[in-house]
Simulated scan of single mutants.
Amino acid sequence: MTADLAELSARFCAALRAQGVAVGADRSARFARAIMVVSPRRVPELYWCALATLVSTPDEIDVLTRVFSAVFESADPADFRGDRPQATASAGAFTASDSRPSRDLRTAMAGSPAERLMSRDFADLEPEELARLREIMRRFELATPRRRTRRKRISATGRRVDLRETLRRARRSGGEPAVLSRWTPRDKPRKLVVLCDISGSMEAHARAMLQLLVCAAGGARAEVFTFATRLTRLTRALARNPAAAMRRAGEEAPDWSSGTRIGASLREFLDTYGARGMARGAVVVIISDGWETGDTGELRAQMARLSLLAHRIVWVNPRTAKPGYRPAVGGMAAAWPYCDEVVSAHRLDAVDELLAAIG
């Protein structure tokens, strides 16, 4: 029986980690993207996708070859040696070792429900279809740029001498400082703040983006707010498993699927949280189609305030995916000059733009 490609790929990455290969969420996501771009028809072609995305040193190649052969039973390690895949390599595509005719990889990929959903707009997905994408969303990593802090750490390559640590160590040598201790500033990831529009026009995309935050590595560290006619903080509600988090989000945001007052919601966020420190130096992601039912002048003023506090403003608008889109009128026109990046992220295979903009 043909196995599910996504399931086998996840098992393959887990097996590599068990063998000591550092396959994190970033490498797993690159492997998944390589499969979607290359669309390998034969097992050796899939091997080259894995080799290009999952290893970083020559020592890991033999481990990858051995684990690949074990996971994808129809693959022979001898087929993957040399400069290119052998023409006589196994034509099996994730098929068990039996006497039935094998099928190519394209057929196997077409049979994977999750892979088929990657190229569909979030607005077209039913709730149960969106739930199938959770495993793939776990391969993504939300990583913000790092910033220098006021804290320090001892480092042999530090440029400044740590007098206190030098004197402390000097006590071991009778007060004579044998070695000068040096220090360097610590750094840490910048804060990630997400403001998600949950009005009627954004309901489907909002659920997808909130699910991504729950599933993706690093998403749990984000401060998450929803807004429509009012602002609601959902950070604690989303720090649970995806299904429970989405139910809790619906309970805590009573204005779900209502109108949109973006400017007023931004003002409330800045007055209550942002100006007090949450937005300072942070990467702020606003998820909205820009349909403002309030005063666009208010939105422009609050975006100007936010731009003075945030390190970077990323606006996610699924409507920008349409050919010829222009922010000519309304809220999007008011907000556009203050955005460092505007992306669509309207389907799973377009989320890479969002991850790059955040990082």
Score class of each variant (00 low, 15 high):
135 E>T: 10
135 E>P: 04
137 M>W: 05
138 R>Y: 01
138 R>D: 01
138 R>C: 05
139 R>H: 11
139 R>C: 05
140 F>I: 04
140 F>P: 04
141 E>R: 15
141 E>I: 06
142 L>N: 01
142 L>M: 06
142 L>A: 02
142 L>R: 00
142 L>W: 00
143 A>K: 15
144 T>F: 00
144 T>C: 03
144 T>G: 00
144 T>S: 00
144 T>E: 00
144 T>I: 01
145 P>C: 04
145 P>Q: 03
145 P>Y: 03
146 R>V: 12
147 R>L: 06
147 R>E: 14
148 R>M: 09
148 R>H: 07
149 T>V: 02
150 R>T: 11
150 R>H: 09
151 R>Y: 08
151 R>L: 11
151 R>C: 06
152 K>H: 08
152 K>W: 12
153 R>W: 08
153 R>M: 12
153 R>I: 12
153 R>Q: 11
153 R>H: 12
153 R>A: 12
154 I>A: 14
155 S>M: 06
155 S>C: 11
155 S>W: 05
155 S>V: 08
156 A>D: 11
156 A>G: 14
157 T>G: 08
157 T>V: 08
157 T>D: 10
158 G>I: 05
158 G>S: 04
159 R>A: 15
159 R>Q: 15
160 R>S: 10
162 D>W: 02
162 D>H: 07
162 D>Q: 03
162 D>V: 04
163 L>T: 15
163 L>W: 14
164 R>H: 13
165 E>H: 12
165 E>Y: 05
166 T>F: 03
166 T>E: 02
167 L>C: 07
167 L>H: 06
168 R>M: 08
168 R>Y: 05
168 R>L: 11
168 R>A: 12
169 R>F: 09
169 R>H: 14
169 R>P: 08
169 R>A: 13
169 R>C: 10
170 A>C: 06
171 R>T: 14
171 R>F: 13
172 R>C: 08
172 R>P: 06
172 R>N: 10
172 R>H: 12
172 R>G: 07
172 R>V: 12
173 S>C: 10
173 S>R: 12
173 S>L: 09
173 S>W: 14
173 S>P: 07
173 S>T: 15
174 G>C: 03
174 G>D: 03
174 G>M: 02
174 G>T: 01
175 G>H: 01
175 G>N: 02
177 P>V: 01
177 P>Y: 00
